[in-house]
C-alpha cells in the first residue's frame, strides 16, 4: 500500500520533470509544479530524487549526436542484426563519406565544466553576485570567483554576460585567446576558430589578447583595446583589432533565439545554423555561392529555420533521419 503510494508520487515527479524539459513550458506549468512540490514533503523528496537522476546524464549529448547514436546502436543491437545492411548503419556510412568533406567545429566533451549547454540549447545561469550569463548553443564555462575578482572561463562557445556592478571586484571573461574585463556592463564573448570576438552592448570593456609567451605575460605585455557600447573587438593571435561599430541588436539576436540575416550569403547563414543543430548539415559552398538571403530565423527550431530558407531561396532541403540533412540548389 505504502509502496504503491510512493510509486505514484515518483511517477508524478517524473512527469513534472518531463514537462519542465518539454521545450514548451509556461509560467502556469512552473507554478503548478511548485505547488505540487510544496503540497507534501514526500513530493519534494521525490522531485529531488528525479532531479538528481536527470543530472546524471549531464555531459552526454554535446558531441553532435555521437552519444545518442552509440546508445541506440548498443541498446538496439538485437533488432538491428535482422536489418543489417539497411537503416541506421547505411546512414552512418553515408555521413562518414560526406563529413570528411567538411570541417565540423570541434566540440570538446567538457564533462567537468561548471556550466554547459548542449547543442541547440540556450541556458541562463544566475551567478552568486547577481550577475547573469546566457550560454549560447554548445557552450561550456567554469567559474572562478575570489575576493578580488570574478572570473568566468569560457572553454568554448559563446556567452552574454550581464554584469552586476561591483567596483572592488572586476568581472573578467577569459578564453584561450584572451580576456574581456568590465565593471558593471553587458557584453558577449564568442570563441572563434581563430580567436575571440567581444561585442559590448552597455558601458565599456577592456579586451586583451592572451600573451604569446609566459615571459611576455610576466612583463605585462599583453595587447589590449577598450571597446565601448555598440562596438566589437576581435582578438586574433596576440593582437586585438581596433574596435568597430556593429549593430548590437543583430549581434546579440541569438539571446532571443533569433538569427537575423540582412542580405547575407546563404552559406554563412547555414554555417551559423549548424551551431544549433545536432547531426550533420551538409551543403556544397560553391553550389550555393550566388545565393543571398534576408530574414529572421528561429534558432530554437532549426528545422523551421531551414523550411523558411527553402521558401525564401531556390534550395532543396532533404532530411535523412535526425542525423543528416542535405541542402542543394533547386
Amino acid at each position: 500500500m505504502i509502496r504503491d503510494e510512493q510509486r505514484r508520487i515518483l511517477g508524478e515527479a517524473a512527469e513534472w520533470l518531463a514537462t519542465l524539459h518539454s521545450g514548451d513550458v509556461d509560467d502556469a506549468d512552473r507554478s503548478c509544479c511548485r505547488d505540487w512540490r510544496r503540497a507534501d514533503p514526500r513530493h519534494e523528496r521525490a522531485y529531488r530524487k528525479m532531479e538528481n537522476l536527470w543530472r546524471r546524464f549531464e555531459g552526454l549529448g554535446s558531441d553532435g549526436g555521437a552519444a545518442t547514436s552509440t546508445l541506440n546502436a548498443v541498446l538496439g543491437a538485437r533488432r538491428r542484426q535482422r536489418l543489417r545492411g539497411g537503416g541506421a548503419l547505411a546512414v552512418v556510412l553515408l555521413v562518414g563519406a560526406s563529413a570528411s568533406l567538411l570541417s565540423l567545429p570541434f566540440a570538446p566533451l567538457d564533462l567537468l565544466a561548471d556550466y554547459r549547454s548542449a547543442t541547440g540549447e540556450q541556458r541562463h545561469v544566475a551567478l552568486p553576485d547577481g550577475s547573469e550569463l546566457v550560454l549560447n548553443s554548445g557552450t561550456a564555462v567554469d567559474l572562478d570567483y575570489s575576493a578580488g575578482e570574478r572570473r568566468v572561463r569560457l572553454r568554448h562557445g559563446e556567452l552574454l554576460a550581464r554584469v552586476a556592478p561591483d567596483r572592488g571586484r572586476p568581472f573578467v571573461v577569459e578564453s584561450a585567446a584572451g580576456t574581456a574585463r568590465a565593471l558593471g556592463t553587458e557584453y558577449t564573448v564568442r570563441i572563434r576558430e581563430d580567436g575571440m570576438d567581444v561585442v559590448v552592448t552597455e558601458s565599456s570593456v577592456e579586451v586583451c589578447a592572451a600573451p604569446p609567451t609566459a615571459s611576455a605575460a610576466h612583463h605585462g605585455r599583453a595587447h589590449c583595446a577598450a571597446a565601448v557600447a555598440g562596438q566589437r573587438a576581435r582578438v586574433r593571435g596576440d593582437r586585438v583589432s581596433a574596435p568597430q561599430a556593429v549593430d548590437t541588436a543583430l549581434e546579440t539576436a541569438w539571446v532571443k533565439q533569433r538569427l537575423v540575416a540582412d542580405d547575407r550569403p546563404l552559406s554563412e547563414v547555414l554555417k551559423e545554423l549548424r551551431r544549433y543543430r545536432s547531426g550533420v548539415l551538409h551543403y556544397d559552398d560553391k553550389a550555393l555561392s550566388n545565393i543571398r538571403v534576408s530574414g529572421v530565423f528561429p534558432l530554437d527550431d532549426t528545422d523551421r529555420a531551414l523550411d523558411l530558407l527553402a521558401a525564401l531561396a531556390p534550395i532543396q532541403v532533404r532530411h535523412y533521419t535526425g542525423l543528416l540533412t542535405l541542402i542543394s540548389p533547386r
Binding site: G23, F57, G61, G65, A67, G120, E121
Partner: peptide, 8 residues
C-alpha cells in the same frame, strides 16, 4: 529529450 535537448 535529455541528451539532444529536443522539444516534445
Amino acid at each position: 529529450s535529455r541528451l539532444e535537448g529536443r522539444s516534445h
